[in-house]
């Protein structure tokens, strides 16, 4: 009956497709959106500081997630290589998720404190100076551009309204915290915070 009618009525075609295609939304997309409060309760994750947040936005803007994942799978070899495997509670403040889907370079979920600040500087400036066969692009402009700090307060307010518990005091001093810092300083602050 269905096969006969959906080929003869544009409305039946539209409505039946919406109904059938929505089943997955109801079955596994929406239910997962309601587990957030449970995750928050069990999480020990800390919100990013103003400088780390600015660094994270540089990470997003430069497209780092195209080549670096941030999702350690619960496999023995993976834990041996990258450290503690990632749990749902770890990522409650990750707007959006930066799990990535490709490891052209290594996973960065637990990168923080693995290398020194100077190592990161040298590596971002010229990856091949540190890892001779690296194919990572060099990011020299990160050392020239500086943050103005104009948007950071607004960013934190937006994130607060989405569920990140920033205090008024944190938002008030955010601008001074990031102002005049180079992009590299912010990005490295973010990278050093990963996995804490």
């Amino acid at each position: 009956m269905l096969t006969k009618e959906f080929t003869q009525s544009v409305w039946i075609l539209i409505l039946s497709v919406i109904a059938v295609a929505s089943l997955s939304l109801l079955a596994w997309v929406l239910p997962n959106l309601f587990t957030k409060s449970e995750l928050v309760k069990n999480s020990t994750a800390k919100p990013f500081t103003a400088l780390q947040l600015a660094g994270r936005d540089i990470y997003i803007s430069e497209g780092c997630a195209n080549c670096h994942s941030q999702m350690v799978r619960p496999l023995a070899a993976e834990v041996a290589r990258y450290g503690r495997f990632t749990t749902a509670e770890d990522d409650i403040y990750e707007y959006p998720n930066l799990w990535g889907s490709k490891r052209t370079g290594p996973d960065l979920a637990n990168l923080g404190r693995k290398y020194s600040y100077q190592w990161h500087e040298a590596h971002l400036r010229d990856p091949r100076a540190v890892v001779p066969t690296s194919i990572m692009p060099a990011y020299p402009w990160l050392f020239e551009k500086r943050l103005s700090g104009e948007r950071i307060g607004r960013k934190m307010e937006v994130l607060r309204s989405l569920g990140v518990p920033y205090t008024d005091a944190e938002i008030d001093r955010a601008r001074l915290e990031v102002r005049n810092k180079t992009y590299a300083q912010a990005l490295i602050a973010y990278l050093q915070s990963l996995g804490e």
């Binding site: 929505s22 587990t35 749902a88 990750e94 707007y95 959006p96 948007r151 607004r154």
Partner: peptide
């Protein structure tokens, strides 16, 4: 359908926004 659900985001400025979902929720929707 999927475009609208996945792209729900909160604007910060003209060219910057944050997804309204985080972590696992965001990955599932993504």
């Amino acid at each position: 359908m999927i475009f609208i659900v996945n792209n729900l985001e909160y604007p910060v400025s003209l060219w910057k926004s944050y997804s309204i979902y985080s972590g696992t929720q965001d990955a599932i929707v993504q």
